[in-house]
Design a binder for these strands. Structure first.
Lengths: 208, 208
DNA sequence: CCTATTCTGGACTTTGTAGTCCAACCAGGA
DNA sequence: TCCTGGTTGGACTACAAAGTCCAGAATAGG
């Protein structure tokens, strides 16, 4: 796979990544083989290694990046404009629905077990995803503050971190139990806490 | 492995499970082989299959149960007596420390990817663990309520669910990033919300 | 002691799968 | 037209790891 890829080559490579992502979602990374990918994408062994010379790990990494990109995209445009309470609730609904539909395979979580979390490439992908996700949430909190719906003293970053943790945990519990109750509870609880901080501040303001 | 195991047999079996657990923690389930277990425990292939006739999956399941049992044990006695704010903070510290020490391999999480979450046995283990964990937390919330530190209207089960989700997510983020900040944020945020509910109720009581 | 049963060692078989190799194909530029 | 380099097909190899088998040692029970 020297310097350049022709349009045809690029198309094939993309087909492989997308097909591999499908296979991984369906069978789980532990049971997905290169032959499955080959069959699904209508390619041959040599193509797989032509576009991913370092073999399976490199392909898995590409799929991980592909999936990571989708995670945030799937939450748009809601995640991008969390400037009112309604917007927050709509976003919550989108998140819950997305993961309920996803069923019981976490494309990213499983990927990293196979590749190894410590692999620099893998780690970078997930760290960057978490960073962006948390940044979007923090920005949403600040938007509430800017709109005067939340006191400025409220710690936006800690709120975003806690919310993100709740989402991750809710999803992983759902993967094991099949129930989205925990995901809902985490989101509802988090948003509720912010609303309470808002009304408490109102009371305080009124009193002051 | 007919009906009974002699004392010697039981010891060997236990040695295998514990050794396998160590190996899995160190290498990760994706890379641990029966030969690793064999070497670590000083046993032979035939013993492995003597005590676990259904092979690797059965062994992994036994390890999963073993690890699941430890999760709650490691939080005792703190998890069992969450009847004051101080007790909650002490418990939080224990949880954070336990997972910081555990490093970057989640014995349970990874196990289920290999076995397959949908396997009835695997699912049962994790569902039961979550159930007990959440029940303990809910009991702690009710203990606060019984002590008059928290209004009775507070939803203990939702609180427990949200806290549990936060823990799970905090841990899984820590596994990927190496930072325990999210775990701390989730716990602190959750406990803080309860305290606020308490003080808000105080204000309300005073006002009423 | 004798015998039945459990336990253990280790060589062997089987299988699934990643990765290799080379010949052939296609497309665009000189 | 020919040539070059990216692209493709598919058979082949290499190997690791699960699982099998049987002979022989240890042990419990009578």
């Amino acid at each position: 796979m020297p310097g350049v890829l022709t349009p045809k080559g690029r198309a094939t490579r993309a087909r492989i990544v997308e097909g591999a992502a499908e296979v991984l979602r369906e069978k789980g990374v532990a049971f997905a083989t290169l032959d499955d990918v080959r069959a699904r994408t209508g390619t041959s062994k040599s193509q797989l290694f032509h576009y991913f010379p370092d073999g399976k790990d490199q392909l898995l990494l590409a799929v991980a990046q592909y999936e990571a990109d989708r995670v945030l995209d799937d939450q748009q445009p809601y995640l991008g404009c969390l400037d009112s309470w309604d917007a927050w609730y709509r976003w919550r609904d989108v998140v819950v629905r997305r993961y309920e539909e996803q069923g019981d395979h976490c494309p990213l979580g499983s990927l990293f077990l196979q590749i190894g979390r410590s692999t620099p490439g893998a780690r970078a992908i997930v760290v960057e995803l978490m960073r962006q996700w948390q940044a979007s949430l923090a920005q949403g909190v600040r938007a509430l503050q800017a709109g005067g719906r939340l006191p400025g003293s409220f710690d936006a970053d800690q709120a975003a971190a806690a919310l993100l943790a709740g989402i991750q945990g809710g999803v992983s519990i759902m993967l094991s139990t099949g129930e989205s109750a925990h995901l809902r509870a985490a989101l509802d609880w988090g948003i509720a806490r912010m609303r309470e901080a808002a009304t408490a501040a109102d009371r305080g303001d009124r009193r002051a």
